[in-house]
Amino acid sequence: MPSNVEIKAIVSNHEEFAERAAQLSQSEGAIIRQRDTFFNCSQGRLKLRDFMDGTGQLIFYERPDTDGPKLSRYSISPTTDPSSLRTVLSDALGVKGEVRKKRLLFLVGQTRIHLDTVEDLGHYMELEVYRLRQTLQLMVAHNLMKQLGVSEENLVTGAYMDLILKGSNEA
Rank of each mutant, 00 (worst) to 15 (best):
R35I: 13
F60D: 00
I7L: 15
T157C: 13
S75P: 00
L136F: 14
L71M: 08
T87I: 11
T80E: 07
L24H: 08
M139R: 03
E126Y: 14
H114R: 03
V150H: 10
I7E: 12
K166I: 13
R112V: 10
E152I: 15
L136S: 11
L107R: 14
G29N: 06
A171S: 09
L104G: 00
L165A: 09
M139T: 03
M125I: 01
G94S: 03
S75N: 05
Q147T: 02
H114N: 04
L89I: 02
D91G: 06
V88P: 03
G122T: 05
Q110N: 13
S25A: 15
S12D: 11
Q43T: 15
S168T: 08
G68T: 03
R49G: 02
T117P: 04
Q134I: 08
S72W: 05
T111R: 08
T79G: 04
V108G: 04
V156A: 13
A9H: 11
L93E: 01
M1Y: 15
E98F: 08
R20H: 10
S168C: 13
R63L: 00
P64E: 12
L165Q: 14
A159P: 09
R45S: 14
R63V: 00
T117G: 05
Q137P: 00
I31F: 13
K70I: 01
Q134G: 01
K102S: 07
L155D: 13
I10N: 04
S3F: 15
Q34T: 09
D81V: 06
H14V: 06
L71T: 04
V140Q: 02
Y160M: 07
G44F: 15
L148W: 04
G94M: 10
V129Y: 08
F106K: 02
G167W: 13
A92N: 07
E98S: 06
S151Q: 11
V88Q: 04
L138C: 02
E98W: 07
H142P: 02
P2H: 09
S25I: 11
Q34D: 08
R100K: 10
R133G: 01
